[in-house]
Structures are given as structure tokens and as C-alpha cells.
Nucleic acid binder design. Structure first.
Length: 151
DNA sequence: GCCAACGTTGGC
DNA sequence: GCCAACGTTGGC
């Protein structure tokens, strides 16, 4: 099973929002590389690290899981949505989503600044592509991060 | 709130 | 197909 890191701005959608909703549609991804990961690589039961970005305490704050195959993002066809894309056609959708299910909150947030100083994470794609909001993590990176948020 | 980094768009 | 201009992300 593949493992992923998903970023979200907590002022927009936080781990507490997910805990309350249980399941949410991960919509609004409008970056091609992120789209391709979702559409081509994500599978049901893949694991997710939930990361808070653009806030006071940036870092990994919980764990979630992929619970659907990729499907067309409905928001791209909704003229009233902020994610509306007039260039996307029903028969050939540009943007995709998956459903995400809450698993658990971190006991302790693993802060970005701590992640940066961990040799175990030196190859983390998060540092190389700071603007990518959907990115794969290796099994080793996964286990290291999970050990940090459970302690 | 600022600003650097970087992804996307569009003119040529 | 290149690259400048533009818009957005995200850390600080």
C-alpha cells in the first residue's frame, strides 16, 4: 500500500474538521503533478499523513486513509464553486478527487522545523517541492514520522 | 503581511 | 517550444 502526505490549511480544513466529518471529498486540487498522483497512483486503503500548512504550527497532525478510487472533482463543473474550471469538460474531466477518511489525530504534532532537522527525512519530497500539496512518502519516512506523532 | 520560490499561461 | 509575466503557495 502506498503512503502519502496531504497538505491542508487548517483555517480552510483542519484535522479536527476531518475528525468531525469522518469522511471528506479531497477537492480543489488544481496542480497537475498532484492531480496525476491522485488519478494514477492513489488506491483504496492507501495511508495518508495529514499536514497543516500556512499556519502557526506547520507539521504532521494526524493520519487518514484513502477510501475511494479517483473520480472527477464535481466542483470543476460548478460555476458557483471557487474551484470551477470553465476549460474542463464533462466527458474529459481535468481534475480528480478521492475520498479521505479520518483515522487518528497525532498525540504530538511533528513540526516542519523538526522534520527538516531529521536525517531520516532528508529525501522527503516536501522539502524539494515545497508547493506540492499531494506527495508520496516512502515506507521508511512513513514509519519514522508515525513514530514521532505517537510519542 | 511580506516575499521568495515556483507552477501556469500566453505571446511570439 | 521558449520564456517573460503573472498568480499562488507557504514559511517566516
Amino acid at each position: 500500500m502506498a503512503k502519502w502526505l496531504l497538505k491542508s490549511e487548517p483555517s480552510d480544513y483542519s484535522i479536527d474538521d476531518l475528525a468531525q466529518d469522518e469522511i471528506t471529498v479531497w477537492n480543489g486540487i488544481r496542480n497537475f503533478q498532484a492531480r496525476n498522483f491522485i488519478k494514477e497512483k492513489m488506491r483504496v486503503d492507501d495511508s495518508i499523513l495529514f499536514y497543516h500548512s500556512s499556519c502557526k504550527l506547520t507539521g504532521v497532525v494526524g493520519i487518514a486513509k484513502v477510501v475511494s478510487e479517483a473520480y472527477a472533482d464535481p466542483a470543476q463543473f460548478d460555476e458557483k464553486s471557487q474551484y470551477y474550471d470553465k476549460k474542463s469538460q464533462q466527458e474529459n474531466p481535468k481534475w480528480f478527487v478521492i475520498d479521505v477518511k479520518f483515522e487518528r489525530k497525532a498525540t504530538a504534532i511533528f513540526l516542519l522545523k523538526e522534520m527538516k532537522t531529521s536525517p531520516e527525512l532528508e529525501d522527503l519530497l516536501l522539502f524539494k517541492q515545497s508547493r506540492l500539496s499531494v506527495l508520496p512518502v516512502t515506507d521508511k519516512q512513513w514509519h519514522f514520522i508515525v513514530s514521532k506523532i505517537n510519542s
